[in-house]
Nucleic acid binder design. Sequence first.
DNA 1: CTTGAAATTAGATGAATGTCTAATTAGACG
DNA 2: CGTCTAATTAGACATTCATCTAATTTCAAG
Lengths: 193, 193
Amino acid sequence: MTETLLAFFKALAHESRLRIVGLLAQKEHSVQELAALLDLKEPTVSHHLAILKEQRLVTVRAEGTTRWHALDIAALETLSRRVLETQQPSAALLAVDEDEARVLGAFVDADERLREIPVNRGKRVIVLRWLMQMFEEDRRYSEAEINAYLKSRYPPDWARLRRELVDHRMMERDAGVYWRLPRDRWRDERLEA
Amino acid sequence: MTETLLAFFKALAHESRLRIVGLLAQKEHSVQELAALLDLKEPTVSHHLAILKEQRLVTVRAEGTTRWHALDIAALETLSRRVLETQQPSAALLAVDEDEARVLGAFVDADERLREIPVNRGKRVIVLRWLMQMFEEDRRYSEAEINAYLKSRYPPDWARLRRELVDHRMMERDAGVYWRLPRDRWRDERLEA
DNA sequence: CTTGAAATTAGATGAATGTCTAATTAGACG
DNA sequence: CGTCTAATTAGACATTCATCTAATTTCAAG
């Protein structure tokens, strides 16, 4: 999701493109018209339109050799609405089933901090899975990065959390670099398993 | 409006800043924590935070030499809602009549910040109505959310603004939760009333 | 007042990207 | 097919901006 949001913001984070959107919001325009209105050369306008089209913010209709560009207001609304969904649900709300909700409710406080590390192995796995939600696959993390995150979740013994994540094959490590393993390779015995 | 919108998009059109917003949406963080989580140096993080603060997307709370940064969700919502409007957001332009335009022009600066709280009750009501535009009906707001928003509009005495909103029956409060009251129940005596 | 920790500011460097000219493609029409 | 027009693509150049190191500021604690 960060992916698409980032692309969306990048698409609109330039004066020329924002002005193009403003002009197309009023009526459709050809490349020539836009170039004249914006005081830019046609290739430049084409370039900006290509970026807006990637985000599906602009649609095209051909008429002879002329191409009429229009704003896709629905797409604009969909994307900007997504910005509003940024609020992160608290731990328990993210849970996928009742066991998880119960365990996370018991061990994670409202500040998203871990109260203690569960002694029971099944419960501990649930907490570990919860910790893993912040890491993406196909991305490398430095040890400092991992430490900072775990420290923010459980200052008393974040080092143990790191060890547990590796033990359960959720993270793998090599030469100070960590990465997330695919979920189906986790040793994720559930409650009472 | 292109001005403020462009600055808003530029602020979020960078991966590091978008990730910072994501992290701050979960909980507040210090510069050090963010630097570790993002695998960046502290000055770099400071730089990004400064840009986000310019857009009032991030608020700061000092504790010793540590500065805890939090996301101002209200500001994020206000700005992204503005994307949907093809409207002019400047305070005076939003006014419904001349009296309002005159008062808002006098008490609200170009940055949408309140210069001072009007002593005259009628003028104060106009300013309060203007503040209310960001709040939706049928939605609950935490006290922290209200505070962050009012603080962004008038740091010197945002607490008084909150009190006034309640006094004028624009907002109601119960157990730390606030919500907007329907406009027809507001005590909105106009100028010289 | 000195020391230490956290953060910011200043300034340098390099990467990302906007804009241009020149060359190329695609469609309309005799 | 040859020509005209609108648009796109390719590649060069310039500007903006992200990131770093080094120096400075701010605040707390001895």
